[in-house]
Amino acid sequence: MFRHLPSAALLVVLLLGSLPALAGSGSGSVRVEPSEVQIGVCYSGQRLSVRATTPSPRKIVMRLTSADEPLTLKKKGKKYGLIWRNMGDVHFTAVPTVYLLRSSCSLDQIAAPETLERMKLGYDGVRRQCLRGSDDAPPELFAELVKLKQKDHLFDWQAGGIQIQPADAGRQEAVGEFLLPAKAPVGDYTVDVFAFQGGKGELIGTANVRLRRGAAVSAITDLAANHGLLYGCLAVAVAVLAGLSTGLVFGR
């Protein structure tokens, strides 16, 4: 009887894997579509639709993040009191590469700042983890880090972008959307949905999104990373051929 157990387990895993990202660690469920994104030749970012079923009535916050990583940046400063240049490194301990936040109303209407900070909702929560244990990153530079990330759309925070509608059995469905920016690196991302009532919040559920390279992009990236000399020679050869061809076409 037990001999079919591994096959059955494998089948369950495959079935689960084929479903859209769907999870429910709390008192609701979260679904993200698409749950897997391929970077193709015409990729320019991807819209992700998030649907969560939660108890009603609740205020909702959705968060998309990547794993935290240490980050070293260059700090600008004045040289000889006149010229603005890079003046040394700044090390942040644990920075999410991507941090996107959506909420059904402004965060100050949802919970107290300390509650939000503890749950890492809003930049104050991120600041604490970024600066923890860092000797050379003064707190005021965190605002500059946010500006730098916002420029590439890697950090983004929008209030009021979530639609809430009634669902069955006294529950509600919250629908939100994230735009995964083109600069987001390949890897796994986590979408967390929080529900708040009376200033108290709980994690309703979590879903995962995987961003990976398509075949063509992967082939070029691999060639560039693992066969640099060949890649460089090919790049020059194609450039010379293209240049000579153009010259010949115009020369006729």
């Binding site: 070293t72 603005w84 240049r85 500059e144």
Partner: peptide
């Protein structure tokens, strides 16, 4: 070089 940058951090 002379005007303060909009963002005081940059990528290496």
């Amino acid at each position: 070089l002379l005007v303060p940058p909009h963002i005081m951090l940059s990528y290496p």
